[in-house]
Design a protein around this nucleic acid. Structure first.
Lengths: 250, 250
DNA sequence: CGAGAGGTTGAGGACCATCAACGCCAGTGG
DNA sequence: CCACTGGCGTTGATGGTCCTCAACCTCTCG
């Protein structure tokens, strides 16, 4: 059985205690950013189990620490994490929120050390590919090398786009785009694009968008009062008649 | 003669008309971001000439266009360029200023298409490595593949750091850091860290830092009146007793 | 000389940060 | 069961930072 292609279940791996939070949310391997990396491995018998291990990350736990040597690449399998760059003053910038299927830790290819860290916002699961394995395999299988470049390049393009968002758009445009971006990413993973969880705090949205938590809260409230979204504890619904797209680049 | 190691001169390549602007400013190959890529090639006889070509880019000319298929990677050999992401509304975000020794076009590894474009701010020269060559070589020489990943990863880390700068720092902190960053990069290339050209317009500094040209102008004037810098047409001097570093993170 | 691009400087105001108070909810312990 | 507590979210008042609009200056080039 090819577990890289068949969407496997959480029960397929040893679990000390199956947690509801991580259930029904894991992404199919075929939708994973790392899939092109994992897939060829399944063809090379005996390698798969050695290369791909899984790991649980409890809410609040750090997957890897800023400044730590890059030992592995990660792919989020289930849950929700944040990738953040801690500042010297205790503040931090949240580079990105990580959804199931997203890759993490790629920025460490620069120095071999993680410049950012990843912290779980809820109980999560990740697939782990040891770095030296990835490198060896990238040498042996040319398409893997290309896929790895593509993955890092995608992160780069995304980061540049985020910078553009930060320089050229108002607070409400940023929040609107943030919601639409999440919506799109959930849709790409086969989930509802109109209703999804929002497990991060307002503070963290602010740290991602360059705003204060109060501003984020006000703007979300404003969107709700206009009938564009519906907020509830830890989740949001984007109403069909959403003017969000309109608001996002005006 | 190994032109990848010996700092070669502009006269060594056919030049329709040697332009003073590009002279005395080309970086030594050993200081180039692409050097680890170029260097191994010189060991493989016969490949070098085919892989590494040079190209002149006149002031105002576009090295590659946003949306164009990625045909090559580039390394700046002499001159000064900007890498920018044009917005739909005619505005744009300047991702980065490119100095001699910097790599350009790496973000195209995401889709095979350039998301950003590079435009010369003054007459420049670039080294060009066709993409398919780079890929073939990366397959053949493992260290090349790793170097390529490292290059892209470095761009990624830099971009994330820039995002952090945009979200968490005031206008004057941004300008101060911008100057210090340029200073450091010139120093790394063997030039003066205290006096260097500033060939971009105020408008363009603003597009890089998320500020208006008026704000940039005011802050530079302010720095000058405090005795921290000395401005002259197209260049700047950072005075030894610079409080810039202090201002950059306060 | 005139025209135009880029830079500087000023006045006024929008936008968002700051500071502060309050509400809601979950968890805790009496 | 209920008060207490602390984290998070909301909302209001106020002020600072930076944008906007505008005038003027300098330099370059035809």
């Amino acid at each position: 059985m090819d577990i890289s292609i068949v969407p496997s279940t959480i029960e397929a791996i040893p679990a000390p205690a199956a947690k509801p939070a991580a259930r029904g949310r894991q992404v199919a391997c075929t939708a994973c950013a790392m899939h092109p990396l994992c897939y060829p491995l399944s063809a090379a018998e005996g390698w798969l189990n050695a290369v791909q291990t899984r790991r649980r990350v409890a809410k609040g736990e750090r997957l890897f620490r800023a400044g730590a040597v890059q030992s592995s690449l990660f792919a989020v399998r289930a849950g929700f994490l944040k990738a953040c760059a801690p500042g010297p003053d205790g503040g931090r910038f949240i580079v990105r929120f990580l959804l199931p299927g997203d890759a993490a830790g790629l920025d460490a290819f620069a120095q071999g050390v993680h410049p950012t860290e990843a912290i779980a916002l809820e109980d999560s699961q990740v697939c782990e590919i040891p770095r030296h394995r990835a490198e060896i395999l990238a040498e042996g299988i040319p398409t893997l090398g290309a896929q790895l470049r593509k993955l890092i390049g995608t992160e780069l393009a995304r980061s540049q786009e985020h910078s553009a968002l930060l320089t050229r758009h108002s607070a409400s445009e940023r929040v609107a785009r943030f919601l639409l971006d999440l919506s799109k990413r959930w849709e790409e993973r086969g989930y509802s694009k109109s209703a999804f969880r929002l497990p991060m705090r307002r503070q963290e949205i602010g740290e991602h968008l360059g705003l204060t938590m109060e501003t984020v809260s006000r703007i979300l409230s404003d969107f709700q009062s206009r009938g564009w979204i519906k907020l509830s504890r830890g989740s949001v619904e984007i109403l069909p008649e959403a003017k969000l797209a309109e608001a996002s680049h005006a």
